[in-house]
Design a protein around this nucleic acid. Structure first.
Length: 243
DNA sequence: CCATTAAAGGTCA
DNA sequence: TGACCTTTAATGG
């Protein structure tokens, strides 16, 4: 028995934790102090949910460290990954578009550190804090745009293109430089990728194996490194259709 | 071109 | 060891 996540307030939360993050970057020290004092901080293990689809949206969150997978459950009980959220972003901000329940589950892809506030403070933040609302809406807009792009891809592209593009997006959004390329910074399985691209884990596995043989990527269990981004870009745009 | 099914080997706690 | 991850092959829409 180990690594039990306990809810607790960490002792020394410095104002610098938030002062560089867009939703709070226009605020002075005193305001940020107030915001932090109203927050609850918590660490989550990888694989645990911060909040779940359908539950009342009681709190909103700022991801300080880690990665979160936004997941929806289908009629048959399967999960599909909608998008990934990197640290420094707000999440659980359903209130911004008038929802009273969370529209999706937020699952930690890695160990994560999160600040949260009771939802009744949302209106206070929007009213009192310069730049907060625009940044929140910008975040929502970006996510909506990303989901839109995927809908278009799924409707118009072949599986190979979709997987290549998904990989490129993850690389640019969460990539970390390593010696032989750029590694996606959190554990991701064939299953996860297949959910993102509306295909099966077997097809993803076959594609990745092929790309690895050609030297485009390297992969270990739950880890993928892109070695040749340009080749993937080409793959992602090539229409291998008879003309 | 791609999903499904089945089977087997690998990895991790 | 058991649960989870990955690959490969066969089959069929």
């Amino acid at each position: 028995m180990k690594h039990i996540s306990m809810r607790k307030t960490l002792p020394h939360l410095d104002t610098s934790l938030l002062s560089d993050l867009p939703p709070f970057s226009r605020l002075d020290r005193r305001q940020i102090r107030t915001i932090i004092d109203q927050s609850t901080s918590r660490r989550y293990d990888a694989g645990t949910a911060i909040f779940e689809e359908g539950h009342p949206a009681e709190r909103f969150y700022m991801l300080l460290d880690g990665y979160v997978r936004v997941i929806r459950i289908t009629y048959t009980g399967e999960q599909i990954t909608a998008l990934h959220i990197p640290s420094g972003q707000l999440l659980g901000i359903a209130k911004a578009i008038g929802l009273s329940n969370y529209p999706a589950t937020a699952m930690c892809a890695t160990e994560s550190i999160v600040l949260s506030w009771p939802m009744h403070l949302w209106d206070v933040f929007v009213r009192e804090y310069d730049g907060f609302a625009p940044e929140a809406y910008k975040t929502l807009g970006n996510r909506l745009g990303e989901v839109h792009n995927r809908v278009v891809e799924i409707a118009t592209q072949q599986v190979e293109q979709r997987v290549a593009n998904a990989l490129l997006r993850l690389m640019t959004q969460t990539g970390r430089k390593v010696e032989n390329g750029i590694e996606i910074d959190f554990p991701i399985t064939r299953q996860n990728l297949s959910e993102l691209t509306a295909t099966t884990l077997y097809t993803v596995s076959r594609l990745l194996s092929g790309w690895e043989k050609q030297g485009l990527i390297k992969s270990k269990r739950k880890r993928i490194t892109v070695c040749d981004p340009h080749a993937l870009v080409v793959l992602g745009q090539t229409q291998t259709r008879s003309d």
